[in-house]
Write a protein that binds this DNA or RNA. Structure first.
Lengths: 242, 242
DNA sequence: AGTAACTGTTACTTGCCGTAACACTGAGTT
DNA sequence: AACTCAGTGTTACGGCAAGTAACAGTTACT
């Protein structure tokens, strides 16, 4: 797995004839032969990511390209049409996993039940999700982070959390600079706790979930209250005079 | 980097003649020609780990065996006399880094200044340490975790924290089962926050340190107080009637 | 009809890990 | 003093997995 960061659009370039690179994006001069594949590529990429997920489920996070392509039922060069290299493919898998987590988590966090309940439910959901694809989860953990929040799984999740957390803080008129470090820290907290749990399995999901959520919750509440924000009896945040 | 876990003592076995495996550890029958190297091996291993650290500092966490051996001034096969494979070597590097962290952290955490101060100081020290060898730190982050707490860096730190945290909880007569998940979570929290900081460098160390320590501190205090343990004015823990 | 952008293949190159085979040194054994 | 064990080190090889080249077939737009 190389560390080199490649432009995601390389895939397109690799195939291009070079002739069509000049004045090209004028609306009328579009060649239908070029554009008709645009959505197909996306679909195919997604399909191959699914195959990769299956291969990783089966062979572990170190699954080779050969195993992935076998799982997709094609030969290896095909993969290289859609992904610049192994790293690119595995980053896409990471993004897939992250999306799963985000999709599972956001709805839970954005209800208007008491905050602590949301945190507890969120942990529960999170643990359930990672247990569904442990190997993919390990891949995500181990995979080197890139700086691109769109490509890297951990970054995707962290960015999402940072955004929503920042919103909350700003709404309360608090310093929002902490959103980023806290979000990344939170992600790490989840990753390591999850990894420990999945590897050891020495504790029920419910139990880890309680420990995890109490960690998160108390950190949140403590920080809030230090800045004059308390949680009232309905479980809502409220700014009180300091 | 293979995932296979190898017995650390393989190195010794690989060289053994096979004849001397039977009744051997009787005190008198020791052959001095065998034993005289025992400490030397340790020393050499440590020396090679140092070289690996230097190579990683220079070439990044993906440094090849060739680069490490070059940095040590020897040829590659030499490395394989002391380390079963690349994974073994890099695990040793991880252990080295973890030891740095533990050595730096424990003295700070075990003073008897107010607890919050210790946490803050600890974060500060931690961030300073990882900034000294960012690439080694990244290696540690990415390196797949093994189940052996003696070999894996993250596990080493987590185990240490789990032990001391467990002691504190037991002293207070509280449920200590949370020590493990919390310790691992704490490690992840530190790893991810550290990684984010080192990669982006968008915030001063002092600032991250404050955010990190407030996260940790409030989690700690909140959990404690939920179980009837408060922090008094001297910053000491005190069990109060519930 | 012609062609652009795919579908896919087999066979190759390259890079790096890990090992084999061999020569030398120096302290401990006999 | 002769022997031998556990080291020191080398160069050269084998093998696996990533990534590329080169080539053949298909389908819808021009």
């Amino acid at each position: 797995m190389t560390r080199r960061v490649k432009d995601v659009t390389d895939t397109a370039r690799r195939v291009g004839t070079g002739v069509r690179d000049g004045v090209k994006d004028l609306v009328s001069s579009e060649d239908g032969r070029a554009s008709r594949w645009d959505e197909h590529r996306e679909a195919r990429r997604a399909e191959l990511v699914e195959a990769a997920v299956a291969a990783i489920d089966e062979h572990g996070p170190g699954a080779s390209i050969a195993q992935v392509s076998a799982s997709a039922g094609v030969s290896r060069p095909v993969l290289y049409r859609y992904f610049a290299d192994k790293d690119d493919l595995y980053r896409a898998v990471g993004a897939w996993g992250a999306q799963q987590v985000i999709d599972g988590l956001l709805p839970v966090l954005l209800t208007d039940t008491p905050i602590r309940e949301r945190v507890e439910k969120g942990c529960e959901v999170y643990l359930r999700l990672i247990a569904a694809h442990p190997h993919v989860f390990f891949l995500l953990v181990e995979h080197p982070t890139t700086d691109d929040p769109l490509a890297d799984g951990k970054e995707m999740v962290a960015a999402t959390i940072a955004r929503t957390l920042g919103d909350v803080l700003r709404d309360l008129g608090l310093d929002a600079a902490g959103a980023e470090p806290w979000a990344h820290g939170l992600v790490g907290l989840g990753l390591s706790t999850g990894e420990w749990w999945l590897r050891r399995r020495t504790m029920s999901r419910a139990a880890v979930s309680r420990y995890l959520s109490s960690f998160v919750w108390h950190a949140f509440e403590g920080i809030a209250s230090e800045h004059g924000v308390v949680v009232d009896r309905q479980g809502k945040l409220r700014l009180v005079a300091e």
